[in-house]
Design a protein around this nucleic acid. Structure first.
Lengths: 177, 177, 177, 177
DNA sequence: ACTTAAACGAGACGGTACGTCCTGTCTTAAT
DNA sequence: ATTAAGACAGGACGTACCGTCTCGTTTAAGT
């Protein structure tokens, strides 16, 4: 069922993604879907979860903070622009905007772990005395991730390596001792 | 009709906002709506346009860049958390995610002017030699606005004055000479 | 729509006759059916009405009461055994048994006129002094029609001319002066 | 299970009487019902059988044929108008109309014995030379029972003692020597 | 002032999907 | 080994809206 959902998300515009189509594609009765999920949004979210693998690997630590952040942000930007990820992300974002339950799940199951990974790398640098004492690591994480997410959402510019690096530059220069 | 749309956006969850309801509320035939707009999204977008007044006043320039940016970002954050603006923004964001035509309109008619206003204030500072030579003003704008938008979208933390100031701190420290 | 209903009644067992199938066969949206009729039963009843033409011609009066009643009852029996009428009658009877509104309609629009026609012929005979003074014409009508309807409903014997005549014999002999 | 069925038949309109409800009421799995009966109709029919007790007592013979028939028909009419019998009869009639297997069972197990009882009383009278030589006892039975059944089915008039007697009058006068 | 045509409100229409209910079959856990 | 419980694929229910399509009815402009 989640596989069918994933396939359809990439095939049809999200507004046309019906529970009936998911059931048909999965060779399943509609009721079976409603038995396990309360809404289309919940199914879509679980499909995303499965896809993301839940693998919330920590950022690598090469010793070079700027390089580590840059490669993470570059990878994120590249991922977001892949058509399949893009479609998934749009779908889930639409649900987040309209269903607080999905939003909560998203924060707990995906957002928080991902941000914790970034924060962990920053904390290492902080502990090594590389960052200013007064820096708020959570804010710093959002200053890295927020601009990239903004470009994806609004299409306000190219989501390329140069942009990722530019964001790292500004954020890091603002945080380094 | 746009008034009816605005009223309904604040009253019912966006998924339940139907063209039929807008027509009924406006005391208008459905056909009249379809005569002037191609889709519900377009109506909603125009309702937002009317609401925003189109007035894209430039940022004030008190001479204190940090204070100017701070008051702008604080105002933005406060605005976004107002229930009525929040509902409107959610509605339009949902449309942006699903309809490239609306996304394009949004960028041209709202996003670009708003960002130009911020950029203008930064350009003044740049010309005054306050900022580093190598700073990209567009990126800087997004480093200010992106994190705030991110918090709104994901509900990942309080959207208060302190957060606005923290973002200004990081972004500005990264850009100042 | 009524034509589609009539066609389907003859084609599929009544338990399988769905509103959806009627709509599809008629090339019509389901809502259109529900706009004009409150239930499947009502549609079926109207289809029967249209079929019966509403034309409730009086019984012929050849002067020979027995012959007139015999030919009427023979025709009724023959009609009831025609597969298409049988299917229709079963359908409507099922509805009558389960929906008092349909039952009421049936009595007013079909049953009463039909019985009035028979009663009229009997009244003529009564006025001519052929029948006993104390006979109740309504009961007499039912004594003619009831047994035939019973055989149809229960399949408890052949519905042929001989049976029709036998019923006429008993009922008439019981009523003649 | 038959008790549960009987209870539900009296409680809910027959169209709403589901196998699931019977199983739940009986505290039994659905499968157990399907193991012993092929359809809802068969269950309902067996529930009726159990209720009727199978007791197919012969009609009493007081020596007065008219009185015996009258009391039988009065009792039948009174029984049919009892809400609980009415509901049962409607249910079974619906099944008879739609399922030839149920119809067959009904004829063999209930209809035939009941009519045989009436016929037996008539045969006694016939043998005593009270009835005309040419009378067909089966037809006579139906001329007694048919009109009453017709009134019940169609609600075309009061099912009271007076009606029962009127029917006996017509039928008997038509049969007496 | 009188015509004429565009825009309108109303709402019926053919459709699609909704979320629910029930069917008859199949599986599981407990007795 | 049989059962109650209930999941399952399937299909119909009756409802809500979609976007299109007539219908008269205003409403203005052009005559």
């Amino acid at each position: 069922m989640l596989d069918a959902t994933a396939a359809l998300i990439e095939e049809v515009p999200y507004a046309r993604l019906t529970v009936e189509a998911i059931a048909a594609r999965a060779g399943v009765g509609k009721q079976t879907i409603y038995r396990w999920w309360p809404s289309r949004g919940a199914v879509v979210f679980d499909a995303l979860l499965e896809r993301s693998g839940g693998g919330d690997a920590a950022l690598p630590d090469t010793g070079d903070l700027r390089a580590d952040l840059s490669s993470f942000l570059r990878a994120s930007a590249r991922e977001m622009t892949a058509p399949s990820t893009d479609a998934f992300l749009r779908a889930v974002t639409v649900e987040i905007l309209q269903d607080e339950a999905v939003a909560l799940q998203y924060r707990q199951r995906l957002l928080t772990p991902q941000r914790a990974a970034v924060r962990q790398r920053l904390a290492t640098a902080y502990d090594a005395g590389l960052l200013r004492d007064d820096v708020d690591l959570d804010v710093l994480v959002e200053c890295l991730v927020g601009p990239v997410a903004g470009r994806w959402l609004l299409g306000s510019g190219a989501l390329d390596d140069a942009y990722a690096d530019a964001v790292v530059d500004v954020a890091l220069r603002g945080a380094i001792r």
